Simulated scan of single mutants.
Amino acid sequence: MTKKSAKAPATKPAAKKPAEKAAPAAKAAPNAEVNKVAKTQMVDMVAEKTGLTKKQSEEAVSAAMEAIVNAIRAGQSVGLPGLGTLSVKATAARTGVKPGTSERIQIPAGKKVAFKVASTLKGNL
Protein backbone atom coordinates (compact mmCIF):
# COMPACT_ATOMS: atom_id res chain seq x y z
CA MET A 1 0.00 0.00 0.00
CA THR A 2 2.89 2.34 0.53
CA LYS A 3 3.84 2.01 -3.11
CA LYS A 4 0.33 3.04 -4.17
CA SER A 5 0.34 6.02 -1.84
CA ALA A 6 3.72 7.02 -3.24
CA LYS A 7 2.27 6.94 -6.75
CA ALA A 8 -0.83 8.90 -5.76
CA PRO A 9 0.98 12.26 -5.37
CA ALA A 10 2.49 11.78 -8.82
CA THR A 11 -0.98 11.54 -10.37
CA LYS A 12 -2.40 14.52 -8.49
CA PRO A 13 -0.24 17.14 -10.28
CA ALA A 14 -1.31 15.63 -13.60
CA ALA A 15 -4.92 16.03 -12.52
CA LYS A 16 -4.29 19.70 -11.70
CA LYS A 17 -3.03 20.53 -15.19
CA PRO A 18 -6.49 20.30 -16.82
CA ALA A 19 -7.90 22.35 -13.95
CA GLU A 20 -5.22 24.98 -14.54
CA LYS A 21 -6.18 25.14 -18.20
CA ALA A 22 -9.83 25.55 -17.24
CA ALA A 23 -9.02 28.32 -14.77
CA PRO A 24 -8.24 31.02 -17.39
CA ALA A 25 -11.53 30.25 -19.13
CA ALA A 26 -13.33 30.51 -15.81
CA LYS A 27 -11.64 33.85 -15.16
CA ALA A 28 -12.76 35.17 -18.56
CA ALA A 29 -16.40 34.20 -18.03
CA PRO A 30 -17.03 36.40 -14.95
CA ASN A 31 -15.59 39.43 -16.76
CA ALA A 32 -17.93 38.83 -19.70
CA GLU A 33 -20.92 38.52 -17.38
CA VAL A 34 -20.08 41.70 -15.48
CA ASN A 35 -21.43 43.69 -18.44
CA LYS A 36 -24.61 41.61 -18.69
CA VAL A 37 -27.66 41.81 -16.44
CA ALA A 38 -29.46 38.47 -16.20
CA LYS A 39 -33.19 38.06 -15.75
CA THR A 40 -32.75 37.03 -12.12
CA GLN A 41 -30.79 40.21 -11.49
CA MET A 42 -33.56 42.23 -13.16
CA VAL A 43 -36.10 40.52 -10.89
CA ASP A 44 -33.99 41.41 -7.85
CA MET A 45 -33.73 45.06 -8.98
CA VAL A 46 -37.50 45.31 -9.55
CA ALA A 47 -38.23 43.71 -6.18
CA GLU A 48 -35.89 46.12 -4.41
CA LYS A 49 -37.20 49.19 -6.21
CA THR A 50 -40.91 48.42 -5.92
CA GLY A 51 -41.13 46.54 -2.64
CA LEU A 52 -42.76 43.56 -4.35
CA THR A 53 -41.77 40.03 -3.46
CA LYS A 54 -39.32 38.27 -5.74
CA LYS A 55 -42.08 36.00 -7.02
CA GLN A 56 -44.29 38.97 -7.88
CA SER A 57 -41.33 40.76 -9.48
CA GLU A 58 -40.51 37.68 -11.56
CA GLU A 59 -44.10 37.54 -12.80
CA ALA A 60 -44.03 41.24 -13.67
CA VAL A 61 -40.70 41.01 -15.53
CA SER A 62 -41.82 37.87 -17.39
CA ALA A 63 -45.14 39.48 -18.35
CA ALA A 64 -43.40 42.60 -19.65
CA MET A 65 -40.89 40.57 -21.67
CA GLU A 66 -43.65 38.37 -23.08
CA ALA A 67 -45.68 41.43 -24.13
CA ILE A 68 -42.64 42.92 -25.87
CA VAL A 69 -41.85 39.68 -27.71
CA ASN A 70 -45.48 39.19 -28.79
CA ALA A 71 -45.67 42.75 -30.15
CA ILE A 72 -42.45 42.31 -32.12
CA ARG A 73 -43.65 38.97 -33.51
CA ALA A 74 -46.83 40.74 -34.66
CA GLY A 75 -44.67 43.25 -36.54
CA GLN A 76 -45.33 46.15 -34.18
CA SER A 77 -42.77 48.62 -32.85
CA VAL A 78 -42.27 48.75 -29.09
CA GLY A 79 -41.32 52.10 -27.58
CA LEU A 80 -39.63 52.02 -24.19
CA PRO A 81 -39.42 55.62 -22.90
CA GLY A 82 -35.92 56.58 -21.85
CA LEU A 83 -34.48 53.40 -23.40
CA GLY A 84 -35.37 53.25 -27.09
CA THR A 85 -37.56 51.60 -29.69
CA LEU A 86 -37.57 47.99 -30.87
CA SER A 87 -38.93 47.46 -34.38
CA VAL A 88 -39.03 44.85 -37.15
CA LYS A 89 -37.12 45.68 -40.34
CA ALA A 90 -37.32 43.79 -43.62
CA THR A 91 -34.01 42.71 -45.17
CA ALA A 92 -33.57 42.42 -48.92
CA ALA A 93 -32.33 39.30 -50.70
CA ARG A 94 -28.62 39.54 -51.41
CA THR A 95 -25.62 37.61 -52.63
CA GLY A 96 -23.07 36.55 -50.03
CA VAL A 97 -19.78 34.69 -49.97
CA LYS A 98 -19.48 31.37 -48.16
CA PRO A 99 -16.47 31.51 -45.80
CA GLY A 100 -13.65 29.13 -46.57
CA THR A 101 -14.77 28.24 -50.10
CA SER A 102 -15.38 31.74 -51.51
CA GLU A 103 -18.49 30.29 -53.16
CA ARG A 104 -21.20 32.83 -53.98
CA ILE A 105 -24.51 32.03 -52.30
CA GLN A 106 -27.94 33.65 -52.44
CA ILE A 107 -29.21 34.89 -49.05
CA PRO A 108 -33.03 35.12 -49.02
CA ALA A 109 -35.00 38.14 -47.86
CA GLY A 110 -36.02 38.09 -44.22
CA LYS A 111 -36.73 40.16 -41.13
CA LYS A 112 -34.58 41.41 -38.28
CA VAL A 113 -35.16 43.21 -35.01
CA ALA A 114 -33.74 46.72 -34.94
CA PHE A 115 -33.16 48.87 -31.87
CA LYS A 116 -32.93 52.65 -31.92
CA VAL A 117 -31.54 54.17 -28.73
CA ALA A 118 -33.50 57.03 -27.16
CA SER A 119 -31.77 60.38 -27.48
CA THR A 120 -31.97 60.94 -23.71
CA LEU A 121 -30.08 57.68 -23.06
CA LYS A 122 -27.61 58.35 -25.84
CA GLY A 123 -26.84 61.76 -24.36
CA ASN A 124 -26.25 60.26 -20.90
CA LEU A 125 -23.77 57.58 -22.02
Rank of each mutant, 00 (worst) to 15 (best):
K111T: 09
R73I: 11
S57C: 02
K122C: 04
K16R: 14
G79I: 11
G75A: 09
A22I: 10
V117R: 06
M42K: 05
V46D: 05
G75W: 06
S87R: 13
A90H: 01
T2C: 12
N35S: 13
Q106Y: 01
E103D: 09
Q106F: 07
K122P: 03
A23F: 10
L121V: 00
P13Q: 14
G51Y: 01
K3R: 07
M65I: 06
K7N: 13
A90C: 04
N35Q: 10
A10G: 13
A92P: 00
E103V: 08
P24S: 13
L125P: 03
M65A: 11
A114P: 12
S5W: 11
P9R: 07
N31D: 08
K3W: 11
L121I: 01
A60E: 06
V43Q: 02
I105G: 08
G75V: 03
A109R: 09
K36G: 04
T85R: 02
T11I: 13
E103C: 09
A109C: 08
K27Q: 14
A28T: 01
K17S: 13
K55V: 08
A14K: 12
A29L: 15
I107K: 01
A71M: 11
A28C: 00
L83C: 10
S87I: 01
P18E: 05
R104N: 13
A93P: 03
A67C: 12
L80K: 08
P18Y: 10
K116V: 15
R104V: 13
A114K: 14
G100P: 00
K54I: 02
G123Q: 07
S87N: 02
E58W: 09
T11A: 14
Q56T: 10
K36Q: 06
A93C: 06
K21G: 12
K116R: 12
Q76D: 11
T95R: 02
Q76S: 11
I105D: 02
K39V: 02
L52M: 10
K116S: 10
A64E: 04
A29S: 03
T120I: 07
K12N: 11
A15C: 11
A15G: 09
R104D: 14
K54E: 00
Q76K: 12
A15Q: 05
I105P: 02
E66G: 10
P9M: 09
G82S: 09
K4N: 14
T120W: 04
D44M: 04
V113I: 14
P30D: 06
M1W: 15
E59A: 04
S5G: 13
A92I: 02
E48F: 04
G79V: 08
G123C: 06
R94M: 00
T95K: 03
A118T: 06
A47K: 05
A114G: 15
P18W: 09
V88D: 00
L86V: 00
Q106W: 07
P81T: 15
M1D: 13
V43Y: 04
R94Q: 01
N70A: 14
V61T: 02
T95V: 00
I72E: 10
K36W: 03
A93S: 09
K12M: 14
Q106H: 06
E66Y: 06
K12Q: 08
A118S: 15
T91S: 01
K54Y: 03
G75R: 00
K39Y: 03
N35I: 09
K112R: 05
A60I: 11
G100K: 02
V69S: 11
V78S: 09
K27E: 12
K36A: 14
R104I: 07
I68A: 12
Q76T: 08
K49N: 15
A64K: 14
A47W: 01
G123A: 05
T40Y: 10
